[in-house]
């Protein structure tokens, strides 16, 4: 499979901003076994199974496939594991899970890409970088209001002129 074609294919999917589920349906309809689209679809499906979010954005999973692709391009052993993994998925029952070296490689490569992706952060509600926005001092570091406020001898005061606590 050519990395070049795969990148184009992923770029189109990304541009259309398809969710993986929709994307996969489309692939299943269009792809012939053994061609690039089918391989990418299988890889994408495998990545999606790593992190089956209810409301999954497309881009992080496409990025994970791109990273796997890049890894395969520079590491023949990884390329082999990916090819073998995809072949095994195809041979197996529909919906079979990735396994063996292929799974280990997905865990080591794709999961870090996914959990470090801003669109996954958005789903998670994680706000990330805060230096450019002055930290969380004024943005809810102590806004929890469903528990009683700890007493003054257990903590310091919020610097004056800034956020107040929940009380």
């Amino acid at each position: 499979m050519s990395a070049e074609t795969r990148r184009d294919f992923l770029a189109i999917a990304a541009a259309l901003s398809l969710t993986p589920a929709v994307f996969l349906q489309a692939c299943a309809r269009l792809a012939q076994p053994g061609d690039v689209e089918a391989d990418d679809a299988a890889l994408l499906a495998a990545c999606q199974r790593l992190l089956p979010l209810v409301d999954a954005p497309a881009e992080p999973f496409l990025e994970a496939v791109r990273q796997l692709d890049a890894l395969a391009a520079r590491d023949p052993q990884a390329a082999q594991a990916i090819a073998a993994g995809i072949a095994a998925l195809r041979r197996g029952r529909p919906g079979a899970a990735p396994a063996g070296d292929f799974l280990a490689l997905l865990i080591a490569t794709a999961i870090p890409v996914l959990v470090n992706h801003p669109e996954i952060w958005r789903v998670a509600g994680y706000e990330g970088e805060s230096y450019s926005r002055g930290g969380y001092l004024l943005r809810g570091f102590n806004d929890l209001a469903w528990l009683p406020e700890p007493p003054a001898d257990s903590m310091g005061a919020v610097p004056s002129g800034t956020a107040t606590g929940a009380d």
Binding site: Y136, G140, F141, N142, D143, L144, L147, E149, P150, S154, M155, G156, A157, V158, P159, G165
Partner: peptide
Amino acid sequence: LPGNNNFK
């Protein structure tokens, strides 16, 4: 230091 949410 003031207490954050995790502290509460």
